[in-house]
Write a protein that binds this DNA or RNA. Structure first.
Length: 712
DNA sequence: GCGATCAGCT
DNA sequence: CACAGCTGATCGC
């Protein structure tokens, strides 16, 4: 939970996500997203009074946040005081001192935060420097590098301070399975259950908070049935969500709530009261999304864990993992960082100890950079690409070194960077309609889940999971121990109707101007993360099993069994759902054979606002990140708060990609074992200085080939 | 009666 | 366990 007090040092007359106490005198308010712990005081009488006297005080937020906020009548008094700002649209606002009439202009830019619908980060630029307030965020590795507006020309903006979501800034959360992997796991579990018959239903035990919508929409889209929810009026202007949820309880996927829902479940009853259909009792399983309940693990685990006869936990996180946080921060490389959250059991100093080394104030004092001709303003070694590395001797021609590493992988010389063309105020630069009129209408060909056997990979006993073992020890005895894994075709086919949703976006955009632009929260660069995340895993520094690439490597007690109560006949057919090392490798292989996705992916973004994200030069080795993108592109699960990508891709050379893969090499395997969370990663880490160096390299996506050569 | 706070519980 | 709440009890206004 956020412990941010509402104000930033640089702009103390602005209040963000806090509306009580000293914030009552703010000149402007900002709300990053619609979660209650970021809305403290927002409907207090004191603030209401303030609004009535101070006519120039407004609340700024994203269009989606405005919509969600005003869907609650308790906040309707804000109606005429909310100014929505489009995402990625730098907008100037005036901070007015109502007593003196003095004005101070600040440029604010909203950047998608990937936390929940409408969630954004705020980038402020003004007389007191550039600061970034992240709100709550879940951004995959490399995503900061894709944010055009965090850059100035071809380098990251000079950012004075970052107010950072540090919810999982704890090595225990070193790695959290990507959103796509979690979704995939849940999807397959749900699918395998509800396809058993019309009376097999799933209850998603989701907290009331916003943030699960993409789960609902993807499940609905993939599996063809709407998700039952208690309320949907808040989505009334969000067709992309609305069309996947329903208040009709006659469906197989439920996310409805009831104060006593857990009790209901024990009585084989859904929270909405359903217990049977046509006189036939329902067969209900519950899936409870949990953030790293998976916590600290010494062994690999699954994104889905069975916790009872008919209950499951699914890994799910609205917040960035430890490594994602560090990647983000090291890329931004601000002078200062302020944690918004102090994880339980930690102190501010503990968190800062992790974050400070990633800041300028620390790194530059520790190891001054060589700045040729005094022209460089920031350390250059941070931004190498693999291709750049080949030209490293060219010390004085550094312009191409300072590149948006992830964003413009190696083609700098081919497609010179053009500064962003965004202008102030309201211009919606995201004309992504053009050139993309062709939407893939093909609905998700229902997944052809070609299960293949895979070896059980984790024969060692998990000794820290009492709950699971206790809860169904006797059940697992009867259940088959086979882990079923998806073959490559699954990943290839997991390419749902994302484009239709995109089409919806367009329709909305084309429509009523008063309706928020949903791409603001469905917009996506891609779904990259896994491999990149893996590549920065602590195993880089250890000698972990290089072939442990199982996503679902779990022992019997952890495996995702699906069984009917009392009836085992079906069990072996649909056992575990998740991806195996083979699947993983298959994905890599498919990456190799299908080719072109990287180009497609990068180019796909070019429609949006960057003329630079062109087709990757085919003769250039791919940076690790690009490889990641490709893989996840093929998994092609929607990235929740951002727009789906088209699936087009131009052919590209298999050989070049082989180069990239081989460069990633064996350590890449760690990337694959996203769920292997070493208990004490720090134990094997190099010293801080070295660490920082490594992280900077990691953050820029250097492949392990490079990295290895620099390891002791 | 309402709001703030806290314990307890997902 | 950890996400982000909700409920109910208590206290003050």
């Amino acid at each position: 939970m956020s412990s941010f007090e509402g104000r930033m040092k640089e702009y103390p007359t602005i209040s963000i996500d806090r509306f009580d106490r000293e914030n009552l005198v703010a000149k402007a308010y900002f709300l990053s997203h619609c979660h209650k712990d970021h809305m403290k005081g927002l409907r207090a009488p004191s603030l209401k009074r303030r609004l009535e006297c101070s006519r120039k005080v407004n609340l700024y937020c994203s269009p989606v946040t405005k919509e969600l906020l005003l869907s609650n009548p308790k906040y309707s008094f804000w109606k005429n005081r909310i100014i929505m700002i489009e995402v990625e649209t730098p907008t100037q606002i005036s901070l007015v001192d109502e007593a003196s009439g003095e004005e101070e202009d600040v440029l604010v830019t909203l950047l998608s935060a990937g936390h929940c619908p409408g969630s954004v980060m705020f980038l402020f630029q003004g007389n007191n420097g550039t600061v970034l307030y992240t709100g709550d965020f879940r951004l995959a590795k490399g995503e900061a590098a894709r944010m055009e507006l965090l850059h100035s020309g071809n380098r990251v903006k000079e950012i004075e301070s970052v107010y950072l979501d540090t919810t999982f800034c704890d090595p225990r959360f070193y790695q959290i399975p990507s959103r796509e992997q979690c979704l995939l796991g849940i999807m397959e579990l749900v699918r395998s259950w509800i396809t058993l018959g019309p009376y097999h239903v799933v209850w998603l035990n989701c907290k009331a908070a916003y943030g699960y919508e993409y789960l609902f929409t993807n499940l609905s889209e993939e599996l063809g049935g709407k998700v039952h929810v208690n309320k949907l009026d808040m989505f009334k202007n969000m067709p992309e969500i609305l069309c996947h949820v329903t208040t009709d309880h006659n469906t197989q996927i439920h996310a409805c709530r009831h104060p006593k829902d857990e009790d209901f479940m024990r009585g084989n009853r859904l929270p909405c009261g359903m217990t049977s259909k046509n006189g036939t009792p329902l067969r209900i399983i519950s899936i409870k999304p949990s953030t790293m309940w998976f916590g600290e693990r010494s062994k690999k685990t699954n994104v889905i864990v069975r916790t009872g006869e008919s209950s499951y936990r699914a890994c799910f996180s609205f917040h960035s993992s430890y490594s994602e946080i560090k990647d983000f921060l090291s890329y931004i490389h601000p002078v200062n960082v302020y944690p918004n959250v102090i994880p339980v059991g930690k102190r501010v100093e503990d968190v800062l100890e992790v974050l400070k080394p990633l800041c300028k104030s620390y790194s530059e004092s520790l190891q001054p950079e060589y700045k040729p001709l005094g022209t460089l303003k920031r350390p250059r070694r941070k931004s190498f690409t693999d291709a750049d590395a080949n030209h490293i001797e060219d010390l004085f021609d550094d312009s191409h070194f300072i590149t948006l590493k992830h964003k413009i992988p190696s083609q700098q010389s081919v497609n010179p960077v053009v500064p962003p063309t965004h202008l102030l105020s309201g211009s919606c630069q995201k004309d992504d309609g053009q050139g993309r009129g062709c939407y893939n209408e093909s609905m998700p060909v229902s997944l052809r889940v070609d299960y293949i056997d895979c070896e059980e990979s984790n024969e060692e006993e998990e000794d820290d999971d009492v709950e699971e073992d206790e809860s169904h020890g006797q059940i697992t005895e009867e259940l088959p121990q086979i882990l079923m894994c998806q073959s490559e075709t699954v990943a290839g086919n997991l390419n749902p109707g994302l484009t239709p949703r995109e089409r919806s976006n367009k329709q909305v955009e084309a429509g009523d101007a008063g309706i928020p632009q949903w791409e603001a929260f469905f917009r996506s660069d891609d779904v990259s993360e896994t491999e990149a995340g893996g590549s920065q895993s602590p195993n880089l520094f250890s000698d972990s099993d290089g072939d442990s690439t199982h996503i679902s490597s779990l022992n019997s007690s952890q495996s995702t069994h699906i069984s009917e109560h009392g009836s085992q006949s079906w069990d072996s057919q649909v056992d575990t759902v998740l991806l195996s090392s083979q699947e993983r490798k298959a994905a890599e292989l498919s990456f190799l054979t299908k080719g072109g996705s990287t180009a497609g992916l990068l180019r796909d973004d070019s429609h949006k606002d960057s003329p630079n994200w062109k087709v990757l030069e085919q003769n250039e080795p791919l940076p690790a990140t690009a490889e990641t993108d490709v893989k996840m592109d093929q998994l092609n699960v929607a990235n929740p708060y951002e727009a789906p990508k088209g699936n087009d891709g131009s052919p590209s050379s298999t050989e070049e990609k082989l180069v990239a893969l081989s460069a990633v090499g064996k350590a890449d395997s760690q990337g694959s074992s996203d769920f292997e969370i070493p208990s004490t990663p720090d134990a094997e880490l190099p010293k801080p200085a070295k660490l920082q160096c490594l992280y900077e390299k990691l953050s820029t996506g250097e492949t392990l080939l490079v990295r290895k050569s620099q390891l002791p």
